[in-house]
């Protein structure tokens, strides 16, 4: 059974025909229930846009997107999005941030608080429940954002470079924590990143995207046991392989653009 399916997704921005820029071109994808998939690509390749479409925050220009046989028409608690910026509500305490979705669902205040406390404990932050977000470090804020999403027991976690703004140590710890959380629950994770190493550390399948317009250029199954260590021999080999795969595809595109501009007289 698949968790998410995309059929022929196209997306472009700009209203008038001549201003249109194609962001995504013909993306077909199926993600199994319980799978951990990363979308890997350079910035501007449309991976975040694709994630927003899966979250239901944006509609695809063309094509269909389904979540377990249901077409996605808007955002929902089944598919929680975690962003690079933790986006905690600064006017609420940590605990009330975590309660946000539960209260939205109509849960009673006390019940919501109990569940939120348990979730905070799970990410090791029950001691800061009365703090305000700006009093926490970046890593702690991101863990609160995780708890705020996880407390809803989502079937799918959509993560948009959630650890990109953190320091190396914090990132490693959070990556490990994320794997634990994923293994503990039956949930599907779609993780967007531009770091090859991060994609290899975390996921079972890496989808390499190339930009301009965004499309899936290659796919790798990572059949390595968890927990994975960054120094692992096989991972270093894979890293080099993906890198070599990514680089020429980029330079090709750049070459093409250069030629196109030269032909257009822009470079004369």
């Amino acid at each position: 059974m698949y968790a998410l399916r995309a059929e022929g997704i196209h997306k472009s921005y700009g209203r008038r025909e001549e201003e249109k820029t194609e962001v995504l071109e013909d993306i077909d994808l199926e993600i199994e229930q319980g799978e951990f998939v990363t979308l890997l690509g350079p910035s501007g390749c449309g991976k975040s846009t694709f994630l927003q479409i899966m979250a239901g925050l944006e509609a695809p220009g063309e094509g269909n997107i389904y979540c377990q046989d249901q077409p996605i028409t808007g955002p929902g608690q089944k598919r929680v999005l975690i962003m690079q910026d933790a986006a905690l509500f600064p006017w609420l305490t940590v605990l009330r941030n975590v309660c946000f979705g539960l209260r939205e669902r109509g849960e009673k205040r006390e019940e919501a608080r109990d569940r939120a406390r348990r979730e905070l404990k799970r990410v090791g932050l029950d001691h800061v429940e009365d703090s305000y977000p700006h009093q926490l470090s970046g890593g702690m804020q991101q863990r609160v954002a995780l708890a705020r999403g996880l407390v809803l027991k989502p079937e799918i976690m959509l993560m948009d470079e959630p650890f990109a703004a953190l320091d190396e140590q914090t990132r490693l710890r959070l990556q490990r924590q994320l794997i634990d959380l994923w293994q503990e629950r039956e949930m599907t994770v779609v993780f967007v990143t531009h770091s090859i190493r991060e994609s290899l550390l975390l996921s079972e399948r890496v989808l390499v995207m190339s930009g301009d317009p965004g499309e899936i250029a290659a796919e790798y199954e990572i059949d390595l046991p968890y927990p994975r260590r960054p120094g692992n021999r096989k991972m270093i080999e894979l890293e080099e392989e993906i890198l070599s795969r990514l680089e020429p595809s980029l330079t090709d595109k750049e070459e093409e653009r250069f030629q196109a501009r030269a032909a257009g007289g822009e470079l004369s």
Binding site: G56, A87, G101, E104
Partner: peptide, 18 residues
């Protein structure tokens, strides 16, 4: 209002009124 707050709230299931 910072649009990331709105995005976060929408994926957390916020209705138009809330």
């Amino acid at each position: 209002v910072d649009p990331t707050y709105l995005k976060a709230a929408r994926t957390l299931g916020a209705s138009r009124i809330s």
